[in-house]
Write a protein that binds this DNA or RNA. Sequence first.
DNA 1: AATCGGGCGTACA
DNA 2: CTGTACGCCCGAT
Length: 97
Amino acid sequence: MKGIKIPEGTFFQQRVWREIVKIPRGSVMTYKALATRIGSPNAVRAVANAVGANPLVITIPCHRVIRSDGTLGGYSGRGGVSMKRKLLRDEGVEVAK
DNA sequence: AATCGGGCGTACA
DNA sequence: CTGTACGCCCGAT
């Protein structure tokens, strides 16, 4: 949280992105945990939407956000889910399925 | 294992 | 401004 710049967007998105950036490398966070983190444990869908609207994949490691089941879920970035899995494995995270 | 509905917010008409 | 449709989902049946 020193020089990371978050692009403009809705309050929700900024809040979600802010939390995603806080995720340490080599670790993953579930959408539910993220939703609860921002104060809306039941708004997990809205959160997922905000993550999907992430314009900066290099600044915001949205690939570190996975489902509660351990699955990767989806990925709107370049390469799709395949890239997401690759990035996670690259950080040393064993991906289920 | 597969299917359905639910909760929240954004985008579009 | 009001209504409808959709999403990188979740939980229950």
